[in-house]
Simulated scan of single mutants.
Amino acid sequence: MSTPHRQLTSTAAPASVHAARDGLDVEAGLRASAADDDDAGRAAAQDADVRVRSRRAVTGSGSDDADLESVERRGAGRPGAWAGAGEQMAAAESQGAVKRPARVDWELMPLEGVGPLCFGMPIGAVAAVLLGMAELRRFQADPSFREVLGVEFGTGPAEPAVYAYFGDGLLFCVAVDAVRGPQVTLWGRELTACAPADLERFFLHAHDCGVLDVRYGPRGNPGANGLGLVVRVQEAAGNAVTRPVMVDRAWADRCTDDWEGAIPECEWVGRQWMYPGQAEHWPPPGYAPNWHDWQPPF
């Protein structure tokens, strides 16, 4: 499936973003958006009315009434739920209870690759550029598409850091472990092992500024199809922290859609973004997906 990626456009933005557009590019606009977020966006995001408007904007003008109601219902409670988690995470870090391991820094090049990895690489080339890591295992990544191969790379036995996914032997998707994986940055903004509430505020502020087109999948995971990026969560030291998942240009269309997108099923299993009335984990208790003989590898 090969489709043109979504254009990143704007309707209204603070002065810093307008200035970036006048003489620079979208990357500069997002850096400016991050600065605005640090100065004013966080305070605004704490206001309930602003949060509701943000969630309504995320649905887009093409959403039908049922979709709009669904996303609003999810968004209405998510910031409050994650705010507590973010505060706990910050408190734990300040007390040394949650220690961030030394990480290598990887820059996300949307739709092209991340760090030393370029989409389209064969398995051997991927292994060669992951310095300090070794292949730990291979597994079937999806119950419906047996040809999708997952390869786990780590810094030591039982220490996974990067998950690489291959179709026809070529790299098309990368996920970074929140505990031991590289620190992925998107134009200067960290994506790995962040408090979900903080990263969500950043994305929604960038959305409101017209820099990103943020979408939520059916299970509530945020991302940007135009960047080939989805942000998942993962358990770490008793907290939920962010885990970036990235795909190449050919598979970016609807990548946030966990039912119809290209990201393998194994990446949607486990801890979920929290919103009212939904289970914290997928599959929820008592639900048996039609996976036949397939079992999630992690």
Rank of each mutant, 00 (worst) to 15 (best):
M133Q: 12
P110F: 06
R138D: 02
L131G: 14
V176E: 09
G167N: 11
P110A: 07
G156M: 08
D142M: 10
Q183I: 06
G115R: 00
G124C: 04
W106Q: 02
M121Q: 06
L130G: 01
A128Y: 00
G120Q: 03
T192S: 09
A161H: 07
P157N: 04
F153K: 08
G156P: 04
E190Q: 11
F172D: 08
L130E: 02
L171F: 03
G150P: 05
D142A: 13
V179T: 12
L171P: 06
T185P: 00
Y165H: 12
L186F: 14
P110M: 07
G181Y: 01
P196R: 01
A197S: 15
R189W: 11
F203A: 12
G188C: 09
F172Y: 15
L130C: 01
L149N: 05
G169L: 00
A127R: 07
E190I: 00
Q140L: 14
A134Y: 01
E200P: 09
Y165Q: 07
L131I: 15
P157M: 10
G113H: 01
G169S: 00
A102R: 14
E190T: 08
L117F: 02
V114W: 02
V129E: 11
G124F: 02
L204I: 10
P101E: 10
G154I: 01
G150Y: 06
V148Y: 14
P182F: 05
P196Q: 03
P110K: 02
R201T: 15
G156A: 15
V104H: 15
F145P: 01
G120C: 02
P122M: 00
G120A: 04
W187Q: 00
F153G: 07
A178F: 05
F166K: 07
D105T: 13
E135V: 10
M121S: 00
V184Q: 03
T185H: 14
P196F: 04
A178Q: 05
L111F: 04
P122L: 00
L130D: 01
P122Q: 00
M133Y: 07
F119P: 00
V184F: 03
E112W: 03
A141I: 04
R201W: 08
P110C: 06
Q140A: 15
W106H: 02
R201L: 14
A125F: 02
L108T: 03
